[in-house]
Design a protein around this nucleic acid. Structure first.
Lengths: 363, 363
DNA sequence: CCCAGCACGGTAAACGTTTACAGCGAGTTT
DNA sequence: AAACTCGCTGTAAACGTTTACCGTGCTGGG
């Protein structure tokens, strides 16, 4: 682990100045003879450019951070999988942060942008607090948020549309003749939890179905919580012919419980998950799930960030990725294991944000 | 995105020198009055230390890289999940590289260590070539390899024991009375593929079972490949009562095919996977799988690296993580869905490496 | 034959830190 | 009262690059 050569070492060996070395290494116009000498020397010494020194001078680290709640969650995983190659192709490295959805940790990440160890940040917070918004507004590096932020927030933003997603699922179940559609949700104080709760009521109403608190359960976004919720529902003998789950994990938990209770899926109870993670395809019966386009959202976020890095002054943009219902056996039975629906090419990139620039007042 | 304050800005405002500012910020002994002035100024300016400049001077980036074949693979995911918190607790950030198992890409990562953008690297290559070994030996930053390297390689190393793992599986199947145990493997030119092939033959021999090429298939480590292999086997009407799969994904593919063929699992054919990924628990019937301790390997690798960063001169170490058989429904039926076996606390950390230091010769 | 123009390359400053060293004033010792 | 110690602080160099600016020597036009 000897001290590596620097441009000084090269300059000495090649008998030129460090400025020439730098120029050759950066491909700036130089005499052939000099180029040759420098490259030979660099080659012989096994020189590699020091990224840190370079960053200090150029004010670019060629690194981008991605902060998510939990790497274990397949949703974020799908995002990382898309983000990574996009960034790599553009010459950026990916720094990973797992915040466990702890607000303080997320604020910390935002704060640490001041250290300038990355050129930008993609963040996917579960909850968006005022503190988040304040930090985002004053961040020292460009930020892209995956998830909904209040209208008018001046930040590049990628959203899923869980409202439409829930509606797709309910419509699907309704079309299959199901009328008692239970709902297993995640925490209501999370952005997705709240959105899905509202969407569920709305979708029922549209279809002329009554909203019945007796068949709604709120728990956590985990498999065990899903099982717990499903059991609570069954114990109450609430009688459902379908279960809408806010999450694939919740749905898997529900499947476990239904199976244990001797109920057939989908004959007795149809089940729909959300996020269309790998698990949905792996489970049996395979799980019908509403894809909220995790992969597409990741890709879009990476692209928004790259665009921003190339032009700091552009207007913030909003990308909304449309949901897609992926029908599998848990609603349609074994027969309908058709091909996975193809997602429409590019998600629509709607222009700037709505709302006034100035915070209060009515100018 | 205004230009942020530096220690110069603080020094000016506080009326002291930049040296004093630095000292205060680093907690070096300083007069109370000065401390107060500096901290006030820093606070008022919203100062944040520039990590790049700091790294340049201190030669420490507080970043560590993890290079794996594919983030999408649950095995690596399990590793990342463990590596991340360990590094974070020690004040390191995690930089992610996905190499798609392309040798050139992996060499590239090793080479780029010369850029000194990280303090160390954890790498999990699928194949280990001579070029890998050469680069590892001359790497400009400490490296930990997850996966087997030739004995005598002077590098911190974490290994799974797939040989024992395969034996556990075969023994289990044998104990259940299965005698025609097919084998669906991955590519033989990968380290795990080769190891598992050898282990399979060996384990059969130990149990006094004949090796029959007719019930062995080699494909890829993916679900579709597993399905293909299983179908080939069935088409050949080879007649098996169990399938040992080199991978959970292969096993899932096999389950699909068996189900489609109307064969009951485990009554007609028992199936064992390997890696014990999340998918194993999610599938139905749930999949008996040999855990090779991905999580433990990730953790161990992170710890080896941290130790090495604290003492560059220590001897390289080898950690071997013992496999654990996780019995689920695909072999034992619904009944045996017992609790997950508890992995023994700390994997044994055997001392240095075997083999001579000098490459050739017999001193 | 002189000088403008040009191609090339060297000198030095800058990026934002950390840190070795020296300076300085206030006690303390002789 | 000189010399010395001690606690604190400031000056400046260094980390390894990039780049503005200037100097040199050559070419060609008048």
């Amino acid at each position: 682990m000897a001290e590596g050569p620097t441009i000084n070492t090269i300059a000495e060996r090649a008998g030129v100045s460090i400025a020439s070395v730098s120029r050759v290494l950066n491909g700036l116009p130089t005499r052939q003879e000099t180029v040759r000498k420098v490259l030979t020397a660099a080659e012989e010494l096994g020189y590699v450019r020091n990224a840190v020194a370079r960053s200090l001078k150029s004010r670019r680290t060629h690194q981008v951070a991605f902060a998510m709640a939990d790497i274990g969650n397949p949703v974020y995983l799908a995002m990382v999988r898309q983000i990574q190659p996009v960034l790599k192709a553009a010459g950026y490295r990916l720094v990973l942060h797992s915040t466990d959805a702890i607000v303080a940790d997320e604020i910390d990440v935002l704060h640490s942008l001041g250290e300038r160890y990355v050129d930008g940040l993609i963040m996917s917070p579960l909850r968006v607090t005022d503190e988040h918004l304040k930090m985002i507004a004053t961040a020292r590096a460009p930020v892209v948020i995956i998830g909904s932020v209040p209208d008018g927030t001046r930040v590049d933003n990628v959203r899923a549309d869980s409202r439409t997603g829930v509606r797709l699922a309910i419509d699907h179940l309704h079309a299959l003749g199901r009328r008692r559609i239970g709902f297993l949700n995640g925490p209501l104080d999370t952005v997705p939890g709240a959105a899905r709760a509202a969407a569920y009521r709305e979708a029922l109403k549209e279809r002329g179905l009554p909203y019945d608190e007796g068949i709604v359960e709120v728990g956590d976004f985990y498999r065990a919580a899903g099982a717990r919720a499903a059991r609570a529902l069954l114990d109450r003998a609430a009688g459902v012919d379908a279960l809408m789950c806010a999450n694939d994990l919740i749905a898997l938990g529900a499947l476990d419980v239904l199976r244990a209770a001797g109920l057939r899926v989908p004959e007795d109870v149809a089940v729909v998950g959300m996020d269309d993670t790998d698990l949905a395809a792996a489970s049996w019966p395979s799980l019908t799930s509403v894809s909220l386009g995790s992969a597409e959202r990741g890709k879009a976020a990476a692209e928004l960030l790259l665009d921003r890095l190339n032009d700091m002054d552009r207007e913030p943009r909003l990308v909304t990725v449309p949901p897609v219902l992926v029908v599998r056996a848990s609603t349609a039975g074994e027969a309908a294991a058709g091909p996975v629906p193809v997602r429409q090419a590019v998600p629509v990139q709607t222009a700037p944000q709505s709302s006034p620039q100035s915070k209060g007042g009515t100018p």
